[in-house]
Write a protein that binds this DNA or RNA. Sequence first.
DNA 1: TGTACATCAGTGAACGCGCGTTCACTGATGTAC
DNA 2: TGTACATCAGTGAACGCGCGTTCACTGATGTAC
Lengths: 216, 216
Amino acid sequence: MSQLDTVNRILDAAEVLFAERGFTETSLRTITSTAGVNLAAVNYHFGSKKELIQAVFERFLTPFTKSLDQELSRRQQAQASGEELQLDDLLQSLYRVALAGLAEEGRDPKRFMRLLGLAYTQSQGHLRRFIVARYGASYRRFAGQLANALPQVDPVTFYWRLYFMLGATIFSLSSFDAIEAILREDFGAESDLDETLARLAPAAAAMLTAPVSSEI
Amino acid sequence: MSQLDTVNRILDAAEVLFAERGFTETSLRTITSTAGVNLAAVNYHFGSKKELIQAVFERFLTPFTKSLDQELSRRQQAQASGEELQLDDLLQSLYRVALAGLAEEGRDPKRFMRLLGLAYTQSQGHLRRFIVARYGASYRRFAGQLANALPQVDPVTFYWRLYFMLGATIFSLSSFDAIEAILREDFGAESDLDETLARLAPAAAAMLTAPVSSEI
DNA sequence: TGTACATCAGTGAACGCGCGTTCACTGATGTAC
DNA sequence: TGTACATCAGTGAACGCGCGTTCACTGATGTAC
């Protein structure tokens, strides 16, 4: 078993277990026994549990932001050459392309959304700092391009709505399997991720473009 | 120090610490030393850490759902007597009334939203079961009334959008302090909870009422 | 080609620590007669 | 009114357990001469 094997087996097991139970609730003993490697291997290859958590996110976020950045560049060029902008199309293609970039690397998009939801609410300060330092630029670029597409919305309202949108996206996709199960039971309706993105994109676009109340 | 004192001191300390750090990350030793009571008092009064967590949520959810139910009844009567319905008004008054019900009992609404966010993503199966068993009826009543107000939206789309809305609400209000700090730094804009609810209600309403795409 | 040494992935066992929970006990208050 | 007993909030110390991490060690592979 080569070094790469061991490292990847640990990452694979950690990814699944973290997504299922959370970070604190998953012990290194569970991870290493699932991966079929020695307990000490995590500290040998990654240094600590914290750094293993970061490595799991890195394996998701690097292809994800790479695809996102490429699509943002493509959109920017199209816009420069005068193509008109449909906000829900923009959102949907961003969602799709970014998640497709993950799938290419063999990373399950639903699992990624679950981990993102965990990262958002579990306290893990080191993880937040790691993500902001490593991927903050892509996020700001995405937010900036979206803000440009909404010149009629004042900045403070825009940013609140951006957080509303992120909340709607991460929260609902993070619980995709649970929600899907409920809707299947109650309405016999099967949903897949693409279909849900096709529902989410126009809903998010409607939220971003809603008329700004003058009462505030 | 009477029994009520000890019980309330434990609940007060647990509420603050859970909201700051999460459930697993907060030990009974930290809670009891913050509350100034004996370590064994938690198990004496509540039975276990799990039951303490449930008691913390009960103290929030009981006044919250009581206010919510009252407002839902008031709205139902107004509707029966032919009053016309404005969805963002409905949402905003529901938000306001429910959170005001909390404030009356001395419970901080922002802390409640943080705990709700934690409950949603931390695995804690016992907590989910407890909340559904105890407060599920109020939730279903709220969802049903909202669905009635949106006859043009098919049920499956409605439920996805309801989860989008819950996501936007819980997620952004759960991180209220962090988002507020960012916007204050970047734009010098101070936000309070009422103002944010006044932004959130129309945004959520726009999302719920968006035209249903025929592509799905 | 052969030998000595260095590097490095991996291992088994142990370390110390903090955790939730338990238990025997105390002391104050309430109750019965 | 006084005594015996029961109840119950609270306590201090300990229990066993699982945790992340460390450490001395192994054995295979690579490198220098």
